[in-house]
Amino acid sequence: MPDKLKNEDLDPGNGASRHALAGVAEWTGRAVCAFFFGAASLAEFCGRLVVATFKAAFSRSIRSRLPDFPRVFARAGAEAVPVTMLVGFLLGFIIAYMSAAMLNRFGAEIYVANLVGLALVKELGVIVAAIVLSARSASAFAAEIGTMSVNDELAAMRTMGIDPVLYLALPRIVAGALALPLLSLFADLAGLVGGWLTLSFFGYSAKIFIAKAFEFCSAADLATSLAKGAVFGGVIAAAGCKCGLETGLGSDAVGRATTNAVVSSLVSFIALDGLYAILASVAGGG
């Protein structure tokens, strides 16, 4: 037996596979550590933001930033409406089309409306909006703030006694938190239209579709979805701002910050959504 083991140890193929296994384990370990360090870092950033906000709650620093808020809000919100509606519409259409093809065999295609309504209002509408916000705004925030960092504009702020976290991040995070629930409503609406379009091929009217779509959805579901959207929006914007504020030196660093912003914002809100689903399940809220 010891001889056999020794022979296996000497087998180059076996050594290579063990080496590969070790590599996978190392990579997994690093990825897990990076995820938790990233989450801790984002939580720390949010904590800094809360402290900074309270410290300057009634100071000129915050009041004077309000005029800047509409510009940021318009970019993150209003300008994102068309693409959010397009993605929502296609998603609703695809879900309805795929499920109708199956349910039609049992003569149950009307339940497509229930499925589309429930999925969009409770989950998918806010996720579509969150993905759009991550791709459009978190990256833009990181690039904008990162470029300012490279150009010494953040350093200039610090020498003036201005906290860039408060001055730059706060209006963007508030804009994200307000824009995402509204965007999710647009995604819901467009998705329902897409779903109805599919069912219309089966001869169902819009009135029937709407009645069925909201059969299992309550106002509480919508409110919960909007609340989730506000949290996701704030976290996505925070992730973008954080990556921008931590930008290193050079244009390459801005590119890396932008990529990190999209990845970390996507991972953050999906992790939060998963956490919410677990908590809701434990609490019996489904």
Binding site: R60, S61, S64, A155, A156, M160, I162
Partner: peptide, 30 residues
């Protein structure tokens, strides 16, 4: 900090603001 002024090598002016708006930024904390 309010009693010192700093000029950086590249100017470090805020690109999204006019020169006059740039000059208003140091008043944010006052």
């Amino acid at each position: 900090r309010r009693r010192i002024g700093v000029m950086f090598q590249n100017g470090a002016l805020f690109g999204s603001k006019t020169l006059l708006e740039n000059c208003a930024v140091p008043f944010e904390t006052l």
